[in-house]
Nucleic acid binder design. Structure first.
Lengths: 181, 181
DNA sequence: GTACTATGTATCAAAACGATATATCAAATT
DNA sequence: AATTTGATATATCGTTTTGATACATAGTAC
């Protein structure tokens, strides 16, 4: 039991809220948790098949007969238990890969302008994403009395706090690099 | 040429500073850039073999005859060009996977104590790593007049800034969760 | 002397990515 | 009315990466 596949936990977690298709799952990963997690169809669909075989999720009958195929999944008792087990595991790996920082670290082989430009590209992306997160936050604050939304709210504030730290760092770093031009 | 393999750029970047063995490369990834990038032997050794065939790096003669085998690599002109090309690419993907946030997001299916504990585990890890980064920073500040070290310094300050943002978020989040206990 | 840790190269199964194929449906364009 | 575009939906495939393991030598500690 209990392989070490992270995508399984993402799927179980999302299904613990509501029944979803593979496509729905991909959408939720991109839209709701995209700023701290990624996932692709290439891992979602195979996982759905294997998890169904393992009895952690089950297919729901497609009642919209005649139309396009659409497979909704529902979490089972076994699935819920696996999710709760994972939540209580002591170990959590936070895998961060900043290509921006990689380029900055090796930027010494090029002119400072190249590094400055790379920071600016990062900065623009972060500014745009930060606005989205702030909009999420203001919406969530209206319904914060609900216990369920608190968990989402906390991840959103995590995003906002780190993004704001990024932006301060960008400003200071550009300044230091420009002194060397 | 120029496949889209990130490990190639890590290897070229590290070799642009000095000649290294595969083992050295792994060590540098873990120790110097480990807080913003990861890499394993399983990707390093195959990449070294293919990059040598492609002419981006070359083996150096092992002069310590008789002793244990030890293969040092040196970057070639082709390799340096590939590195510079990559530095000038507009696109940079920053892939972040925070299992801690994933558990927090789905934490609603368990008692708040579970989420609080997970945040505390994250907090402890970050505090320890932050101390290391601060020690790096104070050492780097002594040699900051050197252009080469500025790039490393900037990545270290990135780590410090984001880790400090993490810690503030941890404190506020624990407080909000404890109110619900 | 022998156990333990660090150095060093290498491979393999499993996991994840990213691109692509295929097809339906709704909405906007021509 | 016909056509094109974009969103919805499932699925696979080659490539990359991870994480574990295997194997062997060198240096250090007890």
């Amino acid at each position: 039991m209990g392989k070490d596949r992270k995508i399984d936990m993402v799927i179980l977690g999302l299904l613990s809220h509501e029944d979803l298709t593979g496509y729905d799952i991909k959408k939720q990963i991109d839209e709701a948790i995209g700023f701290f997690w990624k996932g692709s169809f290439g891992s979602i669909y195979p996982a759905l098949g294997e998890m169904e075989k393992a009895g952690q999720i089950k297919k729901l009958p497609d009642r919209s007969s005649g139309s396009r195929e659409k497979i909704k999944y529902r979490i089972t008792k076994d699935g819920k238990n696996a999710l709760k087990e994972w939540l209580k595991e002591e170990q959590s790996s936070n895998d961060l890969k900043y290509e921006t920082l990689l380029k900055l670290y090796f930027g010494g082989v090029e002119k400072p302008e190249v590094s400055i430009h790379n920071i600016e590209l990062f900065e623009e992306k972060i500014k745009a994403d930060l606005n989205v997160l702030k909009w999420y936050k203001s919406n969530l604050e209206k319904v914060l009395d609900n216990n369920e939304h608190l968990h989402y709210y906390l991840t959103v504030t995590f995003g906002i706090d780190t993004y704001e730290a990024y932006l301060k760092w960008c400003a200071r770093s550009k300044k230091l690099l420009k002194e060397r031009v």
